[in-house]
């Protein structure tokens, strides 16, 4: 048997995180699966002797540090934990805005600060941070979420630049809507706000991450997983005004 590698997966109770944890467990990794939802974690780890569950709020820096020191040397981090309520900016209570920023942005900061030093010490590691296409192209009702994810992108770019050539590979994954329980709930509650779009299957997003880790150069930070995501990101870059107006029209409920 080859040496067993350890992965830390946040948001592992459902959606992208759950599938990432299961695929890594299937491949024989030792998986530390973290989330706030204990029942969801138990479902992810069912009959998987190499998956270990930890209830942890990524918004709590001390909890994340404790988790990482318990898990030990982590070779790959898949940070998928996030919240994304769909609310118009002025109707979103301030504590909710803070909660989104604390979980999505500071959660990422906490995970990076807890795991990156060990990776740098070992001279290798893979840090996969889930962001969103919303970071590049905010749409109505995603103000706090899109702001938090834009902050994740900026943070990831700066951290990656600081540690270029270190042997640690950082990926910032910016998918469009992913077909997860969270997206389905949002889409059924407010079909217009999600543009009546079908989410991209989470397996395809994870395939794109795997391909990027296997074949792309270390400095290639961003992963835009599917053709539509890439097209929108490109249009946003070259035709920012018309793209924003088009996407705004598609996603604004009337």
């Amino acid at each position: 048997m080859t040496a067993v590698r350890t992965a830390l997966v946040t948001g592992a109770a459902s959606g992208l995180g759950a599938l990432a944890a299961r695929r890594l467990a299937a491949a024989g990794w030792d998986v530390a699966a973290a989330d706030l939802d204990a029942d969801g974690l138990a479902a992810t780890a069912r009959r998987s002797p190499n998956t270990h569950v930890r209830v942890c709020d990524v918004a709590d820096a001390e909890a994340v540090n404790a988790l990482v020191s318990e898990v030990g040397a982590v070779h790959r981090v898949v940070h998928a934990a996030a919240v994304g309520p769909m609310v118009p900016a002025l109707e979103q209570p301030l504590p909710d805005v803070e909660h989104v920023l604390r979980t999505d942005f500071l959660g990422t900061v906490h995970v990076v600060r807890a795991t990156l030093p060990g990776m740098l010490e070992r001279g290798r590691g893979e840090l996969v941070l889930f962001s969103s296409l919303a970071a590049l192209l905010p749409v109505p009702k995603t103000s706090a979420y899109a702001a938090a994810k834009a902050a994740v992108n900026a943070y990831a770019e700066a951290v990656a630049a600081e540690h270029a050539g270190s042997g640690v590979v950082i990926r910032c994954v910016c998918p469009r809507q992913v077909d997860t329980p969270g997206f389905r709930a949002a889409a059924s509650a407010d079909p217009a706000a999600t543009g009546r779009m079908r989410g991209v299957p989470p397996g395809l997003v994870l395939d794109a991450v795997d391909r990027s880790l296997a074949a792309r150069p270390a400095h290639d930070l961003y992963v835009l997983p599917d053709p539509l995501t890439r097209a929108v990101a490109r249009a946003r870059r070259w035709l920012p005004g018309p793209t924003a107006r088009l996407v705004g029209r598609v996603t604004l409920s009337r």
Binding site: L19, R22, R23, A25, A26, A27, G28, R46, R47, S48, P49, T51, G203
Partner: peptide, 12 residues
């Protein structure tokens, strides 16, 4: 075969 979600757990 990669079993990601099934009654026998995840495995190859």
């Amino acid at each position: 075969v990669r079993y990601a979600d099934g009654d026998l757990g995840p495995y190859h």
